[in-house]
Each structure stands twice: as structure tokens, then as C-alpha cells.
Nucleic acid binder design. Sequence first.
DNA 1: TTATAAGTTTAGACAAATCTAAAAATAGTA
DNA 2: TACTATTTTTAGATTTGTCTAAACTTATAA
Lengths: 224, 224
Amino acid sequence: MYQPTVTEENYLKAIYHLSNTGTKSVNTSSIATSMETTAASVTDMLRKLSDKEWINYEKYKGVKITRKGEKVALGIIRKHRLWEVFLTNILEFEWDEVHNMAEELEHVSSEELIKRLDKFLGHPKFDPHGDPIPDQTGKMESHDKFNLSAGEAGEKYIITGVTDHSTLFLKHLRKYGLLPGVTVSIAEIMDYDKSMLVKVSKDKFHLSLEVSKNILIKKYVSSK
Amino acid sequence: MYQPTVTEENYLKAIYHLSNTGTKSVNTSSIATSMETTAASVTDMLRKLSDKEWINYEKYKGVKITRKGEKVALGIIRKHRLWEVFLTNILEFEWDEVHNMAEELEHVSSEELIKRLDKFLGHPKFDPHGDPIPDQTGKMESHDKFNLSAGEAGEKYIITGVTDHSTLFLKHLRKYGLLPGVTVSIAEIMDYDKSMLVKVSKDKFHLSLEVSKNILIKKYVSSK
DNA sequence: TTATAAGTTTAGACAAATCTAAAAATAGTA
DNA sequence: TACTATTTTTAGATTTGTCTAAACTTATAA
């Protein structure tokens, strides 16, 4: 119906993420924080997004994304994650370097371009951070991830993703070789601060709760 | 010094092209035509570009691009042409399909991205339309092109580019296999309308002056 | 339950890029 | 040269996305 502007696309993406990630309701101030702007600006934009039927919005009552809005958001997320795969796999950037470039590339409008990029990359299912890539209809895989901080001593896990996508955090993980696909065994969990001693291939090291909380894992299954 | 906006980048690109292409001076109305906007809007923008020292501008006296402005323009042109190579060589688009996508991709800001893209593509010297790609310092090859309409009967030439970049024209040329690199012999030039009978591999066909005027060629050299 | 705090919206303003209509400057021509 | 036509600029508005400060609503807690 309407063609969203770049700003509208970014708001819808933020609202989509807030709807699915946090447990709190999607309110004006949480959007303001995630968009790094003021509550007043958000209110203005919510009216516009509501007029275009991408969200349901009632004053003082918070926001719910509509089917239409979700479709826009998933389209942008698809583009973002495909470009991230391109940047790491083809142009050989590190996983902590690609986010800002993908933030720009995701707004390039051609659907045909993204279709061909997807094909060229071999229809990847996950981006370099382990996040699933929606297909053209918006569907995506979602394996039952949980936090490394909820893992048990003596168990073996595979890293599937992260919840903190900041460059600082990703760089930190890269230093330890903690990338999606890597196997981690928990040797010990400290009672005092919930920090853990982990083993990755032949290295052993300490992870704070702050770090383990932001790493997503699945159970290690030996065969296949 | 200043970071140009997308609009400023597009104005500088247009002014650069007008400075180098046409013989007429770069005046307000020619910029307005090429930017598909009004003379009033152009005047406003010229003041801004002048404030930022990308052009020298005197009221009613027309415009001259500065070194700084030329550097900005060449950076955009470099990005545009590298993305065009990517779209045709890697994503297998036709040469008449890539322009609009490249118009968006050229404004993605990362210098490192374009450096790696250039490397990935094998440091190409020309884009799919035969236009030279500036290097990081703004230098580019410029072989002595001339118009096919200035060619002589009985002579053999190699297509090096086009002067009309419209989809309509490029599609027309593609139908005849008239692409950069292809060899063309002029069999006959009609006195009446300056149309020409040309031979391309085994095909023979007629080209109007309208068409031949927009094809760039160089002399065919048999060895090497 | 009422006072206060927290969160949200409105009002009014601004910068960027654009427009139309009118005024001013330059160019072309008799 | 002087008149007219063309080109360019100015003036005043508009749209998008933003801001601060003030007003308003909802939540919290004595």
C-alpha cells in the first residue's frame, strides 16, 4: 500500500524486536531508548505508523505491530541478515564489523536484488551471529535456544547465537573463539558470582555471568 | 571536513558529469533538468554546496566544481560503477537493469566496504557500460573514445561504451549484441540519413544515426 | 484516597529539501 | 540602445523528522 521511508522502516524493525525480545510491553520510552531519540519524537512517529496501519496504537496504551507492519519488519530483517552473510562470507569481514554496514544496506529497496543475493549466498538459514534469516514470506527457523548462563556444569553445548549484538561484545567473544557453531563444555560454575569455567577445544577460561547471559546455546548431540 | 548528505552527493555527481560531458557551462537550469527538480531548488542547494566549499558559485554566473567537490563526486562514481560490476558479474543482472540499484548502493558510506568489494571483483578498470572506474585517489583510465557515428565505411571498431545510459537504449543494444568489447565493422554509410549498415560477428543490420551517435568506439587493432 | 512520581502527549520550533509565484538580473534582438 | 524574453534568485510555504518544555495521564505509595 504505502512505501515506508527509511526512518519508518527503522521504527518498525525496532518495534518488531521489542515485541519479540523483551517481556515488557512495547511502550513509548522503550522505543525511544532503542531508537536513541526522545519520547516526543516517538509519539509523533507512532501516529504516522498507525495511520498507515503498520501498528495498532492507542494513546497512553502502548503499541502492537500489525500483520502488515510485521511483514515490513521481516523484509528489512531478511535484507539485514543476508547482507551480513555477504559481508562475512564473501568480503571476509569479521562478525563484529558488519552490523553498521548492514544497517545501511538493508534499506536498498530492490526485491530482485535481495532474491539474487540470497541465491548467490546459497539460501543461508542463519546470519553470522546465529540469528535466523526470514524467507520471502517471512518464515524462519527457530531452534530452541537458551542462555549459556542457564547451562549446567559437566554439560556440553553448541553456541547458536548472541543476545547482545554490540561490537564491543562480539569482539570480546571473537578473542576467545566463541562463535556460532563452536562447542563449549562447562567445567565448573562458581556459587559466589555465577561465573563459569568453560572449555573450548583445548582452551579453558573463565566467563562472567554478564558474558554467559548474552550467549545463546543448544544441547550438544554427539551423532549427526 | 563535512559529511555530504545523500542529496548533496547526488548534486555533486550531477555537476561533475555536466562539467565533463556537455560543452555548455554548468548553469542552474541544466542542473535542474538533470536532477529533475526546479531551478529554485537548485539555487538553494548551490548556496549550501558553496558554503561547504564543494563548488565555486557566484549568483547568475554559474558553477564550477572545486577539488574537494570533485573528490566527493569521484568517490560516488567509483562506488556506483563498482556496484554495477558486482550486479552484472556476480548477481548476473543484465547491463540495462543495474543503474537504479547502483544509484542506491552508491550512498552506502563505508570506505572499507568498497575497498573489499573492489578487491573481490579483481580491481576492475571499467563498468559494464564501458565507463572507467576511478581508483581510491580518483584517477581513472581514459582511452580515446569517439562516436560510432564518426566511424568510416570499411573500418573495424571495438565498442567501448555508450553516452545514453537509459534502460531503453541499453535494452535496444542488448537485442543486437552491441556490448562493450564487441567488434563492429561498418559496411556502408547512407548519404541520405547517415544511417549505417554494420556487421557484428555474422549478423548484418542497420543502425540509425540516433543510435550510432550514442555508441562509443575505439579503432580495432588486430594483434594483442 | 490523595499526593507524588513516572511516563506520555501536545505545543511550538527548527533544519533539510522541496515547491510555486513573484521579483530581479542577464541575454538576445530590433 | 532599449525592449523583450529567458534565466535566475528571492520570498513564503510545505513535508519529514527531530527537539525542548509544558501539560496531561497513569501508576505508586503513604
